[in-house]
Amino acid sequence: MNNSSIRENVLKQIKERGIEPTARWKFVVKNSALWMIAFISFAAGMLAVSTLIHTTNIIDWDVYKYLGRSYAEHAAIVFPYFWFAVLAIFTTLAYAVMRITKTGYRHTKLAFIVAGMFALIVAGSGLYVLGTGEYIDDTISEYSSFYTQLPHHKINIWSRPEAGLLSGTITRIISNNEFKLEDFSGHNWTIEEGDVRWRRGSSRKIGTKVKLIGLQLNENIFVVNEVRPWVATPLPKVK
């Protein structure tokens, strides 16, 4: 095959096989889809950062002593790995997709990582301040029992009456030193108040969700020493 026969052969094949240039719109759709996936993955990463900040922030780091753990052990167990994994999955996906876009190869891995981390931290923190992380955490907690059983989740940590940690909703005030509480599994408890320390933000009202530290007397009675509010909002929300 000489040089011109390559050209002749290509033109012949184009005609015989009916080869045509692929329509431009197909490339536009493909490229747009890639950018869309990258954007959605990055957005999911930002939401994961905001929820990671929220869940890390509401962990009761000091209850390790009730659980028979050292502080380091407790911290290693209750760190919200779930949200860290979600963040890792979506940012890796965003990175992989951006690399295969038309100009993705022009940027180094380091540039992607530094710019990506910066954007994720800034945007994720912004979303956290707006209350997005809390909203996501609460919504998933409401619909997924799997999620509430994760080691970092406060329902999991505060549903251990045998260890002195109990949580739920106040359903009835019996007397000045007794009230009824329904825990998150639906079990009803009589709470006896000894020398109780009510932490700031907690209140002794029907319908209020609280965390209790104390002693389980039997299957239905719990003596409380300390009451903490269920919802902690360390940063003021932007209205």
């Binding site: 095959m1 094949q13 184009i14 197909k26």
Partner: peptide, 23 residues
């Protein structure tokens, strides 16, 4: 030479098919 011809032929066919992708 024959193998190179084949590579070139495929190159030209792929290029033609993807002409609309050229930016």
């Amino acid at each position: 030479k024959e193998e190179a011809d084949d590579v070139l032929q495929e190159t030209f066919i792929k290029t033609y098919q993807n002409l609309n992708e050229y930016d």
